[in-house]
Design a protein around this nucleic acid. Sequence first.
DNA 1: ATTTGTGAATCGGTTCACAGCG
DNA 2: CGCTGTGAACCGATTCACAAAT
Lengths: 230, 230
Amino acid sequence: MKENSVPEATVARLPLYLRSLVDMTERAVATVSSEQLAEAAGVNSAKVRKDLSYLGSYGTRGVGYDVEYLIYQISRELGLTQDWNCMIVGVGNLGRALANYRGFGSRGFRVAALVDSDTAKIGGRVGDLEIEDFEDLERIAKERQVSIGIITTPAAAAQGAADRLVSAGIHSILNFAPALIQVPDDVSLRKVDLSIELQILSFYEQRKAAFDSVRRARRLTGSAARSTRP
Amino acid sequence: MKENSVPEATVARLPLYLRSLVDMTERAVATVSSEQLAEAAGVNSAKVRKDLSYLGSYGTRGVGYDVEYLIYQISRELGLTQDWNCMIVGVGNLGRALANYRGFGSRGFRVAALVDSDTAKIGGRVGDLEIEDFEDLERIAKERQVSIGIITTPAAAAQGAADRLVSAGIHSILNFAPALIQVPDDVSLRKVDLSIELQILSFYEQRKAAFDSVRRARRLTGSAARSTRP
DNA sequence: ATTTGTGAATCGGTTCACAGCG
DNA sequence: CGCTGTGAACCGATTCACAAAT
């Protein structure tokens, strides 16, 4: 049953399914069941079926899903039948690493511009791209039809970078800076925050260490073990 | 009311609160209400209160929370009163960038080792660390008491890297490789996947573009606008 | 016979709204 | 009076379980 509004959680899993499906074509798999796709993507099969049902009825009962066709449908849903130009704002270690990241462009994304406000960096090159002046952001974004802004500035500069991206008419932003940034309602913002991820791991690591030490002390081997896993 | 089991969603927000609180001490703020902290962290105040209530009753009714004391309690809960040693597996662009990332170590995390299987890289240096042989991973992890493994290998090598980290007794892994990896139940695994983030943005970007073009075509300015936002 | 697609049940998490306390 | 802490209501997402399809 085709409808609009795919749940957010489903959208976040579609890229996972897509990756698994692409892997399968490389191993010349033609058809896949929800069970097999679930296994490959690391989820359960009910979730796969429900997720795919939001896109339409693309499976065949008793058979499964045609891999190629499903790749096409998911790609279309995700907007990957066109290319998207990205601009990296802030060319430090991370910005440079992302600019060089191969397989970034592999699925429809292209780094079209690098900007920085450090005059010592402007004019320098990363791969075949020149580092340009942050002040020219709006012009560059318009000229190169940039749709996605990637912020890799220090935390203190992140909000300013976001403001300029928004004023350049960009409404999709990926923020790597360890800072909360505010954008208008019509702008999509996603964040990747290394230190937050490490802190989350630290929480569970600590909990495991505590539990282990209790176990060691009490010599209890397999009883009343309340789960310590996320 | 103090209990065990802090919900996963709460754990993921504690680092956010912590960052906001640290910012506040720098601006010499002594006390904060759930309303103010919510604003700073970009969530709502009911969530702040409920989240903090899982840690204990650390607020004062009619007053708010003591900033310093709350920093201490959250840090303790997150296991940040001790330092954690990390090992980066795979020293490509991204591994190198993370190794150089300042403010990484700022809150209790230290890059204690870099390993790679490329003999051309082994023996090289990144900052003050030497790149060591992937084959020596277990020994290095033990010697330096590494608790957290960070995978920045190509996708094809990621599972192998994870297996070796697990066999070295590490049970916290942060995976940057664009690949699904399997780990035992007692290992915490978090993933950061650039291309998935971009694909999610692409989905919403496409949806916005579609809506905009309808708007442009029909010249409707403010009616019956079904939400297009995540 | 097999596997999809989906209502219904369930679960975790969010928000509401107010009692309880400083 | 103001703000926390928390039951209760609510909501989105997950899982169950089975009827429908081939």
